[in-house]
C-alpha cells in the first residue's frame, strides 16, 4: 500500500529503495511485548500485592491487577515507538539533512482521542461502580467501632458492647461487616487498615466513616496512621486481629463489655 503511493508520487523519478513497513513492524513488536507483559503481570501479581483480608480489599486488589494489566499495552506503546525510533531512525553524529515533515491526519487524532477517551471512560465507570457497590450493598447493621486518634495513639470503642480497648490491640469477628467511625482529639490523623481496604481521615470536631468492610480472613493486621500528625506519626500503629465469633465475644468481655 505505502509503496504504491511512494512510486505514484515521485512523478516518474527513479523509485527510492523499498522502505520497510515501519508501522507494521512496530505494531507487531508492541503486540508481542504487551502480551508477554500482561502474562508476566498476571503470574507475578499475587506475589507483589499483599494478601487481602476483606471483601473491599479483595476488590481493590483486583482493580489494581486489572488497571496494571490495561496499562501495560499503554506503556509498551510509548516504549516501543520510542525505542524503535531511536534505533532505526538514528543518525550517527550531526544530521546533514532534515527529515520529511509529518502531519497527523484528522483520522489519527480522532482515533487517538477515541481510544484514550474509551480507556478513560472504562476507568471511570469501573471506579464509580466499585464505589457505588461499596455504598449500596452496605450491610444494614454493621459492627460499629468508634476510633479516636490523638497524638500519637489510637483508642477504640465498641459502643454496641460497651467495651473499649485497653491496649494497642483490637479484635474483630470474621465475616461480620464492620464500620469505623473516626474522629480526632487534636490534629489531622489518617486511620488506615491496608489489609481490610479501608481508610479515612480523623478530623478534629468531625466524625468520619470508613466504607463498610467485611473481614474474610482470620489473622493479624496493622492499623497505621497515614496523615502526618507530628513527632511520633510513624509510631502510631495498632494491631487488629480478626478472630472467630466466639473468640471475639470472649475478648469483648475481657475489655469490660457485654456481648
Amino acid at each position: 500500500m505505502s509503496e504504491a503511493n511512494i512510486e505514484g508520487n515521485t512523478g516518474g523519478a527513479a523509485p527510492t529503495r523499498k522502505e520497510p513497513d515501519h508501522i507494521r513492524r512496530v505494531l507487531t513488536i508492541w503486540v508481542v511485548l504487551s502480551i508477554v507483559g500482561i502474562v508476566i503481570w498476571v503470574i507475578v501479581s499475587p506475589y507483589i500485592l499483599p494478601p487481602s483480608a476483606s471483601d473491599i480489599d479483595s476488590a481493590a486488589n483486583f482493580t489494581l491487577v486489572v488497571f496494571t494489566g490495561l496499562s501495560i499495552p499503554v506503556a509498551m506503546f510509548v516504549f516501543v515507538f520510542l525505542g524503535y525510533s531511536l534505533f532505526v531512525f538514528r543518525v550517527k553524529g550531526r544530521p546533514t539533512e532534515d527529515a520529511i515533515p509529518l502531519k497527523p491526519r484528522p483520522g489519527l487524532q480522532i482515533g487517538w482521542m477515541g481510544v484514550t477517551g474509551a480507556l478513560c471512560l472504562f476507568l471511570l465507570i469501573w471506579g464509580l461502580s466499585a464505589f457505588y457497590q461499596q455504598t449500596a450493598s452496605a450491610a444494614v447493621s454493621p459492627l460499629v467501632v468508634k476510633v479516636t486518634g490523638q497524638q500519637w495513639a489510637w483508642t477504640f470503642n465498641y459502643p454496641q458492647y460497651g467495651a473499649s480497648s485497653q491496649g494497642q490491640l483490637i479484635e474483630l469477628p470474621v465475616n461480620r461487616p464492620v464500620e469505623f467511625d473516626v474522629t480526632s482529639e487534636d490534629v489531622l490523623h489518617g486511620f488506615a487498615i491496608r489489609a481490610l481496604g479501608v481508610r479515612v481521615d480523623a478530623n478534629p470536631g468531625e466524625v468520619t466513616t470508613t466504607p463498610i468492610t467485611t473481614p474474610t480472613q482470620i489473622g493479624q493486621y496493622s492499623v497505621a496512621c497515614v496523615e502526618l500528625c507530628g513527632l511520633y506519626h510513624s509510631y502510631m500503629w495498632s494491631t487488629v486481629k480478626v478472630v472467630s465469633a466466639s473468640d471475639f465475644s470472649s475478648w469483648i468481655i475481657s475489655q469490660g463489655g457485654h456481648p
Binding site: H22, S85, L86, F89, R90
Partner: peptide, 8 residues
Amino acid sequence: FWRGKIWV
C-alpha cells in the same frame, strides 16, 4: 521522533 533524523 517517528521517521526523524535522530541525533542522540
